[in-house]
Design a binder for these strands. Structure first.
Lengths: 254, 254
DNA sequence: GCACGCCCTTGACGTGGATCAACAGGCCGC
DNA sequence: GCGGCCTGTTGATCCACGTCAAGGGCGTGC
């Protein structure tokens, strides 16, 4: 009886058995996450970096704006939205984070977070104490390099969003969003053409600088012209090339 | 005769005498630039980081998208715009860089630049070979920390622009832009209320996600209601609080 | 199994900023 | 000093998206 219960626990918690829990070496996300591109022996040296796992229930927050910055988090499972609340009451979604992605880089500059991070589903993260990360990356050049790459890619990704917000029309924004999600799902071994949106139309709209009605309308239009099949949060991409084309119109135009 | 010429050179190039040229220790920008917040003895150790100065004439480019990434640049004098050209022909200004600010962080992730950087006036930069920066920051914790801070602030700054582009109206965008410029001029010891725009209306519009006509109209409106006095590129801020209020409306509303 | 609330969809209408167009001022080369 | 070009201003019109409103599907708790 006792035994049965333990086993169930291990199963539901995936590879959450105490010892393996904090090992990057054995993590199936290592090629998406912090250890990506690092040599095998280097990865072993960073096993100790992750001190704790943390579970965050749907709707709960992982970090709050204003809190002191201590740790970065690597998403182990589930997904999150990152939001900024401005002084004047605006609240905007600035990104969605999936497994293997790093959260908390906003806190480094001022030692306190400026971004709220909220779980879109029951999720789990690996906490990486930042002072340890800095120490270890002074010793392991591969870790240092990889951390710099991650920050730089964050910067580049945001520039992409700036272009989206600054110069794309509603249809292009939504198409770009779907293509981007599709790529990220594929990179994680999921279907690139069929997936479940974890966020509401309002959250998508906030991220894309559109109102939820516009997001809904554009998706319906894509559905009507046969680019996708969409039913509430379930998405099926019927014509990936067409969607890509809708995301950056003139690309295939020449 | 020979002597006279040398002296003139030194004057015009500011502190550009060969030895001092590459010294962060003596640079009057050290509290805005890479050495900011570092201990005196640490700053001495990074003197050697800057190997070369580079002059860039107005309209010339400092780096081009697609070029291999070798160095970061610290703006020594003058100013730049950073632009992304997307595959589908869009070209958007993603930022303006002033003295003390670091350029080139976009290249770290992929080892090649994705951003074009163009001088808005005759300018000068300090080149910081990135491999040297990584080496030295493994030895000097203060440099490592400061470099991480700079990257993090870049990320946070871009999130601010995302909020601007995603949820602000035209007047708020322009007001925010002017307030931001004002702060940066003040931080550099210039007047916060009277300055010269180095960029055109079109460049401002591209950055703010507006058309040049809209930028012009909004500025004229600000002029008419007495917030600013604007004549072509010359700006005089008459009512800083009012402008701040226009930038985030409900802030002072409660 | 029913009722409530949340999320999504769809329609009708309004508007902020884009577009199109004309013109004016400043700067540069000749 | 003059003409051409680039940049900026301003007006008239248009349209993409926002706003307002109604209704429907689906999950959840009692």
């Amino acid at each position: 009886m006792q035994v049965t219960i333990d086993v169930t626990r291990h199963t539901d918690a995936s590879c959450a058995s105490r010892d393996l829990a904090v090992r990057c070496t054995n993590c199936n996300l290592r090629e998406l996450c912090l250890p990506q591109g690092m040599a095998q022996d280097e990865v072993q040296k960073i096993n100790g970096l992750v001190t704790t796992r943390r579970r965050v229930k749907k709707g709960e927050s992982l970090q709050h704006a204003g809190e002191p910055f201590k740790s970065l988090y690597a998403v182990r499972s589930g997904s999150f939205k990152t939001c900024i609340a401005t002084e004047d009451g605006r609240d905007q979604v600035t990104g969605f984070k999936m497994s293997g992605e790093i959260i908390g880089l906003d806190g480094i500059g001022t030692n306190s977070h400026i971004i709220d991070v909220i779980a879109l589903e029951d999720s789990e993260v690996c906490a990486i104490p930042f002072s340890r990360l800095e120490e270890v990356s002074r010793e392991i050049a591969g870790l240092q390099k990889q951390f710099h790459r991650i920050m730089s890619r964050e910067i580049v990704g945001e520039q992409g969003v700036m272009v989206l917000l600054g110069s794309m029309r509603a249809e292009e924004r939504v198409a770009t969003f779907l293509v981007n999600l599709s790529r990220r799902f594929r990179a994680r071994g999921y279907s690139a053409t069929e997936f479940h949106l974890r966020m509401t139309r309002e959250e998508i709209g906030s991220y894309l600088g559109l109102k939820l009605e516009t997001v809904s309308r554009v998706m319906s239009r894509f559905h009507d012209v046969g680019l996708i099949k969409i039913n509430q949060k379930h998405v099926l991409i019927l014509n990936p090339e067409g969607l890509q084309e809708a995301a950056s119109p003139s690309t295939a135009g020449h």
